[in-house]
């Protein structure tokens, strides 16, 4: 219980920090997703802390997850178009993934 509460706050800080410190657009999206997950975690911990298991936060988080996937998809689409504009034609493969 307490453990997950601390985890939620720690994830919140990691997300906030990443959002502000990272210059790369993709990482900002990941950071925002971590941030949102932290808030969802807080809600579900609250649901479990209640005397009778509370289904309302569960429904809220389910809604939130679906909303987040929609915003993430649009953010990624916008990012790709933005970087295409900035960096000329897309060469296709990501060399980064080849090395790792």
């Amino acid at each position: 219980m307490t453990l997950y509460l601390l985890l939620a706050v720690a994830l919140l800080i990691i997300g906030l920090h990443g959002l502000f410190v990272c210059a790369q657009l993709m990482r900002k999206i990941l950071a925002l997703n971590v941030l949102t997950t932290a808030v969802f975690l807080l809600l579900v911990v609250l649901a479990q802390a209640a005397e009778v298991l509370d289904p309302v936060p569960h429904a809220m988080v389910l809604t939130g997850i679906v909303v987040t996937v929609s915003t993430t998809a649009v953010a990624l689409g916008l990012m790709v178009r933005l970087l295409e504009r900035r960096g000329g034609p897309v060469s296709g493969r990501d060399r980064d993934s080849r090395n790792s």
Partner: peptide
Amino acid sequence: AIGAGITGALLLSALGRLDWEAGRATDECL
């Protein structure tokens, strides 16, 4: 299904479309 599955697929497909040079200009975190 959504958080790991679909979002993961979305992220990977966006990564595949990213121009590496454009991405590198602002690569790592500060």
